[in-house]
Amino acid sequence: MPDTTRRTPSTEPAAGARAADASPAPRRAMRLGVAGPVGTGKSTLIASLCRELAAELSMAVVTNDIYTDEDARLLRAAGVLPVERIHAVETGACPHTAIRDDVTPNLIAVEDLEAEFAPLDLVVVESGGDNLTATFSPALADAQIFCLDVAGGGDVARKGGPGIERADLLVVNKTDLAPHVGVDAAQMVADATRARDGLPVLALSQHDRASLGALAGWVRQVLADHRSGVHVPRDPGPMAPHTHADGTTHAHGGAGDVHEHA
């Protein structure tokens, strides 16, 4: 286990910790973001990660929900982690804001978990399913997975966008459904791989044990790189800016921006 010296959560400048992360042996848990459109299997993926890794790593999860704590409930019901290690953050109907423009509520939740269950190895943050362009700020996530599914259509991967092109890992999920939705999963992975310039793409299915093992293996590797200082949090990049009626400005963009705001 690396140095796990705890810092007082409320006094801890989170983004200020970035500089420290560049040096070997970061002192805190790795924060792994999971983003992607609604229903692509993010919560299920996180439950699988807990199942695969909780025996060897001390883990906690933060969910972001548009409506109260549905995802947290789902994960608690899955019985993959002690329920008190799963915190829900409500995002005020603005899931992208909570992972990008103002990550404060999420950082508070992460810090609470880190303080409560010190030392943690891994905190997974699930973004409230939003759109094809919402990605985590490096102020919140040390590494991020962007999750698509075959049911969203074979072209999605080709359309690109910051998450698809530059997340640390792109998951093409629910490959078991590909024949039923008329999608060529291998083609989708190939398209995504081309769009990502060498960054990894993983074809995943709950019905494919080997793929779940590969997912856990990827997380182990990133965690090792994070601890040794090799992994540097990377920003998948900005979205095209637009203004909301409430006066807040967000950035989105790309052909795939299909988010809704209440």
Partner: peptide, 12 residues
């Protein structure tokens, strides 16, 4: 300014 990052967007 509502854009100040202090978590205000979760409160009504």
């Amino acid at each position: 300014d509502a854009r100040l990052p202090v978590g205000g967007h979760t409160y009504s």
